[in-house]
């Protein structure tokens, strides 16, 4: 018990440190990083949306980009077509709700029939292709293959205050704030009883079933949450990037998310979050140096992680942390 407590608090400290660092970046740096980092935070959330499926529950989805795209289209379409006061908030909510509903329907449809885990992967793959094809073909709504423009939103609080997100720093803190809120909610969820049941499902679904839990409901719920989170990240991304197009839903982007999570550490929420940010940053950096080879490098790293370091970066760090800990422990006992 003692061990678990110190571990949790250690991780929480680390998380706090990460978010403090993110919050202080605009104080130190300026320029491009302030523009691009919010996008990578959203990619981090997208990675988290997969890790609560994969690491926590033991389900893989090849369709997270599909939900991300739904979110981005939702805000784009709402902001474009309505002149309501809070169309931005409406757009974000719509992105979350539509993603969650689609995830819920598809999830329940499949989980309630006890579809094999690997089949579920293929179904999410198909789902993501359907979303991409519909985005391409429904030109009147989505702009088709040529894409849809999304204005930077401003958030208004009643008639009193309007907060425009046109400039980089307001957008940065807006995104960071939402990221922290979403992260905290997910964190709460995973440490709650609900999270424990999900972990139980991952370890041994039959036992949880035998204990009287309807596991397909739980799996559907977590897929809903995951879809909602991805849709949420996508909706902020849409207004941040200013442009949405069907390629956002493509399978290659979904699998990029898998690579982020595998490298960051599938069992760790903060690891996945950082995986999204770090791998995307690295990709951007290497892009300007060796565009031909970086994808090859990423592919090889991915293989290495899957074969040798299942815990990813987070697992590695944790191990080092524990080793240091135990060394201290040993040296404390034997002065």
């Amino acid at each position: 018990m003692q061990n678990v407590l110190t571990k949790i608090s250690g991780e929480a400290k680390f998380e706090l440190l990460i978010f403090l660092a993110l919050a202080s970046i605009p104080l130190v740096f300026s320029g491009y990083i302030l523009f691009i980092l919010p996008q990578y935070m959203l990619f981090g959330l997208l990675a988290v949306s997969l890790s609560i499926l994969w690491g926590l529950t033991g389900i893989i989805s090849f369709g997270q980009a599909g939900f991300f795209a739904i979110g981005a289209y939702a805000i784009g379409i709402v902001v474009k077509s309505t002149f309501l006061m809070n169309s931005a908030i409406l757009g974000i909510l719509l992105g979350i709700i539509v993603s969650a509903v689609i995830a819920g329907v598809v999830g329940y449809f499949l989980f309630s029939a006890k579809v094999k885990a690997t089949y579920f992967v293929l179904a999410t793959l198909a789902l993501s292709i359907i979303i991409e094809q519909l985005a391409k073909s429904q030109k009147e709504i989505t702009g088709g293959w040529n894409g849809l423009f999304v204005d930077r939103i401003s958030i208004s609080f009643g008639n009193l205050l309007e907060y425009s997100l046109f400039n980089d720093i307001p957008m940065y803190y807006f995104t960071l704030l939402l990221t922290i809120i979403a992260y905290a909610l997910i964190k709460f969820l995973t440490t709650s009883n609900f999270g424990k049941i999900l972990r139980g499902i991952r370890e041994n679904e039959d036992r949880i079933l035998a204990l009287g839990y309807n596991t397909s409901i739980y799996k559907t719920l977590i897929f809903c949450v995951s879809g909602a989170l991805a849709g949420f990240a996508g909706s902020i991304y849409g207004t941040h990037a200013g442009f949405v197009d069907p390629s956002l839903a493509r399978v290659l982007f979904s699998t990029e998310v898998i690579v982020w999570v595998a490298i960051g550490g599938r069992n760790s929420i903060i690891g996945s979050f950082l995986g999204g940010i770090l791998v995307a940053s690295l990709a951007n950096y290497l892009n300007s140096i060796t565009p031909e080879y970086w994808q090859l490098i990423i592919g090889i790293v991915f293989i290495a992680v899957v074969i040798l370091f299942k815990g990813g970066l987070a697992g590695g760090l944790e191990e080092i942390y524990h080793r240091l800990k135990s060394k201290n422990y040993v040296s404390a006992r034997n002065p």
Binding site: Y32, F35, I36, A241, L248, N287, S288, P291
Partner: peptide, 21 residues
Amino acid sequence: LADYQTDRRLVVEQANRLLRQ
């Protein structure tokens, strides 16, 4: 030169890199 890998997401990323960085 910036490579956007035939990906619109990266057009946004790289165009901003060219302009801001």
